[in-house]
Amino acid sequence: LVRYRTISKIPQITLNFVDLKGDPFLASPTSDREIIAPKIKERTHNVTEKVTQVLSLGADVLPEYKLQAPRIHRWTILHYSPFKAVWDWLILLLVIYTAVFTPYSAAFLLKETEEGPPATECGYACQPLAVVDLIVDIMFIVDILINFRTTYVNANEEVVSHPGRIAVHYFKGWFLIDMVAAIPFDLLIFGSGSEELIGLLKTARLLRLVRVARKLDRYSEYGAAVLFLLMCTFALIAHWLACIWYAIGNMEQPHMDSRIGWLHNLGDQIGKPYNSSGLGGPSIKDKYVTALYFTFSSLTSVGFGNVSPNTNSEKIFSICVMLIGSLMYASIFGNVSAIIQRLYSGTARYHTQMLRVREFIRFHQIPNPLRQRLEEYFQHAWSYTNGIDMNAVLKGFPECLQADICLHLNRSLLQHCKPFRGATKGCLRALAMKFKTTHAPPGDTLVHAGDLLTALYFISRGSIEILRGDVVVAILGKNDIFGEPLNLYARPGKSNGDVRALTYCDLHKIHR
């Protein structure tokens, strides 16, 4: 019993810090008490220290592992850092350059016999395009090294910054494609005289377009951006097909006994025919423009016929181009109408809503002055909100995010209106959640004399007048207030005048 009563005193000691020596009952000389009392004092002292730490809000209350900052290894790049964003855009520009100039170089340097010394005699450094290609190869190699040090988000939505895990993730992902696209074939085969082989191998750079397509997928929600990307894709495919079309004609031209190829026909049409040795002929500019003209006309199913396939190889390629053109029509131009419709969806919704308003007016036989006010209010409210119901949009977000959005939407009023000066951010967040926005066209009466005042109004834009009878008592403008002081009276009061809008007004109100 003594032991039980001794232990039962522990909660009292913990909360009230009572010393055991003052209790005459606990001072009985028993061996059990002498053993338990020192333990009680020690526990009391420890609990006292913990309570003191909690009340003082000291940093040592938290466990040590929670006080440590997340460790980022040296030379690790955050995937959302500004440097990584700028670097990704730079790589994107280099990939676009590669997609345009690599097929052009591979096709127009394929057994090209233009006048001038061969590239091997001039030297590697004197070729501007080769120098640019070398810079692109170096940048792609540097990009691989950067990807080995860039964080990523795993399946659990955690940012991984450990170098080993980053390397394994990159090896399992895009490393092989990036490595093949970054191989400097110019340096590996330079001086061997195989410019045709170098041009063909350099087309491996186009593998990076797969990554670019995935990154550009984030802009699919913007109709104008999608339309622009589709047109660029169409032009890029036409450019690639033009390079292939020229390569076919250029390879067949020296081996044909009869002059029936499209390059021969082009030379005869523009007065620059090929001679018996295969030299001469149109310039590279004429060849490229004509090839691009043929691919565009074939892809769009126009086909004027002034550039036509004559050999079997050219006919087979033309059939493939027609098939590609039909697929592009289905996948690209078939979506253009939907994209344009999405661009004008706001206008369509406006006309639909206006039609419903006019049908309501016609069905209920609203008189002319009231009908005009109804239409003007709808037009003004639509121009202010673009038909978007803010309350319906915010309803799907958590309250903390709703408060931040409301604070942002009402920031101008909260910053410049005098009653809100000096208020804490928590108070402003709470008030912003209570605001209701209303609009009024010129001549609209917001409050009639004798109406119950259940709200306090803040003028965000425009001006109003307060009338008693036919006498203008006051004219209020931006950041002015009218209405009933909230919670100042037990019952809502009545208006002693009319409140009429002089201009288009936007008002925020808080109800009782």
Rank of each mutant, 00 (worst) to 15 (best):
A130M: 05
P254V: 14
F397D: 01
Y274W: 04
G267Y: 01
K285S: 10
N312F: 01
Q365W: 01
L109N: 07
D404N: 03
S161D: 14
L401N: 01
Y293H: 13
S297L: 01
L200T: 05
G346V: 07
M256L: 15
L409P: 02
T295L: 05
I237E: 01
G426Q: 04
S326T: 15
V131F: 07
I91F: 01
Y288N: 01
E112K: 11
I361C: 06
A423E: 01
S277P: 01
T385H: 15
F360D: 01
I270V: 03
G303A: 13
Y65E: 05
A99W: 01
I248A: 01
I183T: 06
F234C: 04
E114Y: 12
I96E: 01
F333W: 06
K202Y: 01
I77G: 01
L92T: 01
G193K: 14
L209H: 01
P441N: 05
Y104R: 01
G164V: 13
C243A: 01
P273H: 01
L92Y: 04
K111P: 14
I144P: 01
F228Y: 01
M179Q: 01
H439Q: 15
L200D: 01
P70M: 06
P369V: 03
P70Y: 04
P441E: 06
Q379R: 10
S258H: 13
T120M: 11
C232A: 11
G325I: 01
K215L: 03
L266C: 03
N386Q: 14
L93H: 01
K172M: 06
A238L: 01
C406N: 08
Y80G: 07
I135S: 03
L414S: 01
N306C: 03
F101Y: 14
V393D: 01
W89C: 03
I183K: 01
R421S: 08
L236Y: 01
R165Q: 12
L266V: 01
A449K: 12
I339R: 03
I91D: 01
I91H: 01
D143W: 01
G334D: 05
I237V: 11
K66F: 12
W87Q: 01
V136H: 01
R165Y: 07
P369Q: 07
L236F: 01
T424N: 14
S412I: 15
P118G: 12
S313A: 15
T352I: 07
A224M: 11
G443E: 01
V307W: 01
E158I: 09
H416N: 09
Y344T: 07
Q379D: 15
A238H: 01
A330M: 05
A119N: 11
I339H: 03
L394H: 03
R211P: 01
P441R: 06
N410S: 09
E64C: 07
S81I: 01
F435G: 02
